[in-house]
Amino acid sequence: MFYQSAYVKSPWNCELRTLQLPDSLPDAHVLIRIEACGICGTDLSHAENGMEEWQPFGHEVAGVIERIGSHCDDLQVGDTVVLESSGFCGRCDWCRDGRVDLCNKAPNFWKSGPSLGFSEYMIVPACCVVRYEGMTPETACLAEPAGVAYDMVKTADIRHGDRVCLVGPGPIGLMAIPMAIRSGADEVVCVGRTRNRKRLEAAEMLGARVVASDLPLSEQEELHGRFDRVLVTAPVQMIPQALRLLAYGGILSYIGIGTEDGRIEFDANDFHYRKLQLRASFASPALYYPTVLKMLKKGTIPADTIISHRMPLRDIAGAMTMCKEDKGATIKVVITPERRRASNEG
Rank of each mutant, 00 (worst) to 15 (best):
R159S: 13
I239Y: 10
L21I: 06
R17F: 02
A203N: 13
D43T: 02
R274N: 14
I177L: 09
V100L: 09
R197L: 15
I181P: 03
W12E: 09
G249P: 08
S284A: 13
V30W: 06
R341I: 15
Y289K: 06
L245Y: 01
G117T: 06
A146E: 01
S343P: 01
C127N: 13
V230C: 04
A242F: 14
M311D: 07
P302I: 04
A203P: 15
S253M: 08
Y121G: 08
S45E: 04
A185H: 00
L21K: 11
W94R: 05
G256S: 04
H272R: 03
L166Q: 06
I331G: 08
L116W: 00
T330A: 03
E204H: 11
L296Q: 08
R279S: 11
G225W: 06
H224P: 07
D186L: 11
P285C: 04
Y3I: 03
S112Q: 02
I239M: 03
E265Y: 13
V292W: 06
S183N: 14
V232D: 12
F57P: 03
M179K: 14
C72L: 01
A342T: 15
T321V: 05
V236H: 06
M175Q: 06
F271M: 06
M175G: 07
D261H: 10
L44R: 01
A303N: 05
K275C: 15
S5I: 01
N13T: 09
V124G: 05
G184V: 13
Y254S: 10
A140R: 00
H71V: 00
V334N: 12
R33Y: 04
N269H: 10
V30F: 12
T80C: 06
L166H: 09
E120P: 11
A149N: 07
M295H: 13
I251T: 15
P22D: 02
L296Y: 09
E133C: 03
R193K: 15
A143K: 02
V230D: 00
G117A: 05
L206Q: 01
G87M: 03
K154Q: 14
A208T: 11
E35H: 08
F109G: 02
L246M: 08
P137H: 08
R209G: 12
T139K: 00
R229T: 11
V334W: 05
D43I: 03
F282N: 02
D186K: 14
Y289H: 12
R310Y: 00
L246F: 07
P107T: 04
V129K: 13
G262W: 09
P145Q: 08
A208S: 12
A268T: 14
H59G: 01
P107C: 02
H160G: 12
R91S: 14
P137T: 09
